[in-house]
């Protein structure tokens, strides 16, 4: 399979070098790590927002570093959580004395490493708080799973907590905003193809020309169900119905939607899906306050999409509407 790589083991390293080369005035890499931080950070008087996780989800996470969003992002190897040591270095580098909020996606590795890093940073007298995003409705949250995965809803968490911190919110207030988004956001994804991790060099799973996977995550892992190929409208309907019924949105409520590309799907197809998503919401009397369409949380070169719905009130609307200036998200 053809890919633009050199030595696959340098994949993340070289990507990060390329990112800092593209945004030298915005991003700075902590020496000897895979952590990027704001070039102008730490920002005095502000709670720091940090995130991190495996690579392969670009522009997540480092693309969201900047004013109104993240202060730092740690990149692990492809689909692998960063180490606790690097997360700790990030927390320490970003803290401006007001505390640090870690936005963690609900995967065992991420949670374990962020927990350990928080303990390490607290030993250095840094206040650390955490929110764990678990918006994926494809996975049942029960004793028989590791809970729901954190997927594209994470972007809205980053945006809201980033805005709250920029507005001078305390660590507790910023954390509360994060929890509020998490309580109100749900996502479900599907794949037309698997993805190719650079080290393996071939597709993680085989999918026939006439088959799709429903309920996929963001790591090229198989989903919860394999079915026959569907039309864009059928896909939009399946994902939206599952998300809405889980979130229990009622007529008259306002929402933000994201039709997110998994990395290998053209924007035109995402718009086709979005068209149907908006039609479905309209039919139910649910009002879309803002509709995002694009590649926000990807899974390398996977073809497919996810649909995110987040219920919003005045507070969340203000925060999601607030100024933001990052490589991947601007006003």
């Amino acid at each position: 399979m053809k890919k633009l790589v050199n030595d696959p083991s340098d994949y993340v390293d070289e990507m990060l070098d390329g990112m800092t080369a593209a945004y030298p005035d915005r991003l700075r890499r902590l020496d000897g790590t895979k952590v990027l931080v704001r070039a102008d950070g730490p920002v005095d008087g502000k709670v720091a927002i940090v995130s991190g996780g495996g690579s392969g989800h670009e522009p997540t996470h480092a693309g969201y570093i900047g004013d109104g969003m993240l202060d730092g992002a740690a990149s692990g190897e492809v689909f692998t959580s960063p180490t606790a040591n690097e997360l700790n270095e990030m927390i320490q580098a970003c803290d401006a004395g007001e505390g640090v909020l870690c936005v963690v996606k609900n995967y065992e590795g991420d949670v374990m490493n962020f927990d350990t890093a928080a303990e390490m940073a607290e030993m250095e007298d840094i206040d650390v708080a955490q929110v764990v995003v678990n918006d994926d409705v494809a996975v049942e949250d029960s004793l028989y799973t590791s809970g729901r995965r954190g997927v594209c809803g994470t972007i809205l968490v980053h945006k809201a907590v980033g805005a709250k911190a920029a507005a001078g919110g305390s660590l507790d207030e910023v954390q509360a905003v994060g929890e509020k988004v998490i309580d109100n956001v749900r996502t479900m994804g599907m794949a037309l193809t698997s993805c190719i991790t650079p080290e393996k060099g071939e597709e993680t799973f085989d999918l026939g020309d006439d088959e799709i996977e429903l309920g996929i995550g963001i790591h090229g892992e198989p989903g919860t169900e394999r079915t026959d190929m569907m039309t864009a409208d059928e896909v939009a309907e399946h994902l939206t119905e599952n998300v809405l019924s889980d979130l229990e949105v009622e007529a008259g409520e306002e929402v933000v939607t994201i039709v997110n590309g998994m990395g290998g799907t053209p924007l035109s197809e995402l718009f086709i899906v979005n068209r149907k998503v908006q039609e479905l919401l309209d039919d139910r009397g649910i009002e879309t306050w803002d509709a995002w369409v694009g590649d926000y949380m990807t899974s390398l070169d996977m073809m497919g999409c996810s649909v995110t719905v987040c219920r919003v009130d005045d507070e969340l609307k203000d925060l999601l509407d607030a100024d933001v200036d990052t490589p991947a998200l601007k006003d």
């Binding site: 495996g54 692990g76 190897e77 692998t80 959580s81 960063p82 180490t83 606790a84 040591n85 690097e86 995967y107 065992e108 590795g109 374990m112 490493n113 350990t116």
Partner: peptide, 15 residues
């Protein structure tokens, strides 16, 4: 292992 692996394997095997 903790310093180089990451993921869940780092803490589980290394820790």
């Amino acid at each position: 292992i903790i310093g180089n692996v990451g993921g869940a394997s780092g803490p589980l095997y290394g820790g």
